[in-house]
């Protein structure tokens, strides 16, 4: 393969890993626990901005080309970890306000408003995160180390993303199939019942909000370290909806389903778009892409609400609960 194709392939793989992490993060919130986080994209964005600020160094050092607050130059894994911390903290803060005792659908809309307002603030205050132009020239971590540049560096980055993605998959699978995961599903199915069983549903919601926020931030941090730039145009509120579509089509609370669903949406839609050579009608095509996404979501909700690979619903039979859990866990963890 020539280097252009290899670079393209590595780009695809990095985006794959980033999106798997983000989709699973949303799945914990939406699929497993039933929290409608319509502000999801904000958390991915917060991670991207955090990682950028933690690796760019002070704004003055870049010759005043872009303006932002703070700015530190931390060694490699620290910007990622910092982003995770920022995502978790933001999850706590937004959850504290947004998860108040409002009806679930209004809660969702308030979270949507949070994400719209956040981008409004960033665009309105150019000195905060460089406004509409966004942050750019984010250094790629460890570039040039051990002679890694160009194609070899891209493959190394893919490897790193695969490792992170694998760790996240293990974490999420363990969580979902643990007793705690059952609490989360109880909250989804009937929060009053969960409360009655002695589990605070609002606490559980808050916990998945923090965890999902942290993972979403991780996905954003990985992405910005690869693309080197992040701007408000990349986290408009409809972007949240893509992840919802992925989870709905794949199958709520089904980790392999979510991964497969995403693959199908991505490849399916993209190939359809590729069939049209774009020209003057490019804007129409871009709009129709969103229309297709919306129709797919409605279609799945109507014809196959359980998704392509439905969640395994465990029934408590005569077998001891513990062994059944473990069996399910191994099966799903391996995936298709």
């Amino acid at each position: 393969m020539n280097s252009a194709i290899q670079l393209y392939a590595t780009t695809l793989l990095v985006y794959l890993a980033v999106n798997l992490i983000a989709s699973w993060a949303l799945d914990i919130q939406f699929g497993v626990t039933g929290v409608l986080n319509f502000g999801f994209i904000l958390f991915q964005s917060a991670g991207a901005y955090a990682a950028a600020l933690l690796s760019l160094g002070p704004a003055k050092a870049s010759g005043g080309f872009q303006q932002y607050f703070g700015g530190w130059q931390l060694p490699f894994p620290l910007p990622l970890l910092g982003a995770v911390a920022v995502g978790a903290a933001l999850g706590w803060l937004v959850g504290w306000v947004g998860l108040r005792r409002l009806r679930g659908d209004f809660q969702a809309v308030v979270l949507l408003v949070v994400s719209v307002v956040a981008s409004l603030v960033v665009e309105s205050l150019p000195g905060f995160l460089n406004g509409d132009a966004g942050l750019s020239l984010v250094p790629k971590p460890l570039l040039g180390l051990a002679g890694l540049t160009g194609v070899s560096y891209a493959w190394a980055f893919v490897g790193f993303c695969a490792v992170v993605c694998g760790l996240v998959a293990i974490l999420v699978a363990r969580l979902v199939h643990s007793p705690y995961g059952r609490v989360l599903r109880a909250v989804r199915e009937n929060d009053a019942l969960a409360d009655a069983m002695g589990r605070s549903s609002s606490r559980a919601r808050m916990e998945v909000f923090v965890l999902g926020g942290a993972l979403a931030a991780l996905s954003g941090a990985l992405l910005v370290e690869f693309t080197t730039a992040w701007a408000p145009s990349g986290w408009l509120y409809p972007e949240t909806f893509v992840y919802f579509t992925i989870v709905i089509i794949g199958g709520r609370a089904s980790l392999p389903g979510v991964a497969v669903g995403a693959a199908l949406i991505a490849v399916g839609i993209q190939q359809a778009v590729q069939l049209f050579p774009i020209g003057a009608d490019a804007t129409v095509l871009a709009s129709l892409q969103w229309v297709v996404i919306g129709i797919l979501t409605l279609g799945f909700l109507w014809w196959r609400p359980q998704g392509l690979i439905p969640e395994r619903v465990r029934r408590f039979g005569p077998t001891p609960a513990g062994s059944a859990t473990r069996g399910g866990e191994v099966q799903e963890g391996v995936g298709p």
């Binding site: 039933g34 409608l36 319509f38 009806r103 679930g104 659908d105 969702a108 809309v109 949507l112 409809p238 909806f241 919802f244 709905i248 804007t283 129409v284 709009s287 129709l288 969103w290 229309v291 996404i293 919306g294 129709i295 979501t297 409605l298 909700l301 609400p305």
Partner: peptide, 22 residues
């Protein structure tokens, strides 16, 4: 559910908005 309906309405919003844009 009301919970599901909000996803239905946002899908509709997305479709509507983009049809107008198209």
């Amino acid at each position: 559910s009301t919970f599901g309906m909000v996803i239905v309405t946002i899908s509709t919003a997305l479709i509507g908005q983009n049809l107008i844009q198209a």
